[in-house]
């Protein structure tokens, strides 16, 4: 390689890194601002021009956010709700996907269409009757109301079915010959093999439920039963909280999902894109 070409290469790479950095700064800027403000004191947050970085490791806002609003209770509710929905969806979707992948029954295609059609019905089109149902069952302000409507998932069933179809049918024949019942075949052989797909669905459904907003807003009024996304916006509505305390709350609420993002990101992407691109 000539000296000229090498210089040109270094120059292009520097330019590319510069471009990447500028874009990255713009994308991350809102999150950086939230983190900054969460560590500003009362006087700092009201100062002009606004500060672009925290001046010290000031953690009082986090303590205040936790003390003055039942944030931990909200967090607990959200985690209970998300875990229950995640577990329920894993179970119902595994069972349904098993039927679609391993049982040749009459009307299978029609049934599959019935499942897929639920993806076309927006949640908002059914929300008024669902609200009335949950209210008449006395499920407002309960975990039942927060979880039961979401215990089935067409998307998850589809995702798992796609994965189950890659499992050789000979395995099923062999299991049948050995006298293994269908439910045992599912739990002992299919599910352990499908661990990557189950992981994807678990991360996906947890995130979806944890970030829910409209439904918990409708069916929870009791402060003890609020979920974290609603609770955190209530912090904003109350005038006594300044931006720095609200942002401290926001940072706390974001922590679980960021942890999940770091742990499960690759899994989530691999699983989702396998289903999406090959669809």
């Amino acid at each position: 390689m000539s000296l000229d070409a090498r210089w040109q290469r270094i120059l292009t790479n520097t330019a590319l890194y510069l471009l990447l950095t500028i874009v990255a700064v713009i994308v991350i800027f809102p999150l950086w601002s939230a983190l900054t403000i969460s560590m500003l004191s009362e006087t700092e947050v009201a100062s002009y021009p606004p500060l672009l970085a925290p001046t010290s490791l000031y953690l009082t806002n986090f303590v205040r956010a936790l003390e003055q609003a039942p944030l931990l209770r909200y967090l607990f509710n959200s985690i209970v709700q998300s875990t229950l929905v995640m577990a329920g969806q894993l179970i119902t979707a595994s069972l349904a996907a098993y039927a679609f992948a391993f049982i040749d029954f009459k009307g299978r295609n029609l049934m599959f269409l019935v499942f897929l059609s639920t993806l076309m019905i927006p949640w908002e089109a059914t929300i008024i009757p669902n609200y009335l149902t949950v209210r008449s069952l006395g499920w407002t302000d309960t975990y039942m109301g927060l979880t039961v409507p979401f215990l089935a998932t067409a998307f998850g069933t589809f995702l798992l079915r796609q994965f189950f179809l890659t499992i050789p049918r000979e395995l099923q024949d062999a299991a049948t010959i050995d006298g293994c019942g269908s439910l045992r075949f599912l739990t002992a052989i299919v599910l352990p093999l499908a661990r990557p797909a189950l992981g994807t669905l678990a991360v996906y459904s947890f995130l979806q439920t944890y970030n829910q907003y409209l439904w918990p807003l409708l069916i929870t009024n009791d402060q003890q039963m609020r979920t974290v996304q609603i609770g955190i916006t209530l912090l904003q509505d109350e005038e006594r909280f300044a931006f720095n305390v609200v942002m401290a709350g926001v940072v706390l609420v974001l922590l679980p999902t960021f942890a999940l993002f770091i742990v499960g990101n690759r899994q989530l992407i691999r699983g989702l894109t396998a289903g999406a691109v090959k669809g």
Partner: peptide, 29 residues
């Protein structure tokens, strides 16, 4: 950089809105 570009997957609509509520603030934003 890939991780930074995909970071908002982990952000909920409620928290994003609260952050922008501050960024949009007419005087302090």
């Amino acid at each position: 950089f890939r991780m930074i570009f995909s970071l908002t997957i982990a952000v909920s609509a409620a928290t994003a809105s609260l952050i922008f509520l501050y960024l949009f603030h007419p005087a302090l934003g």
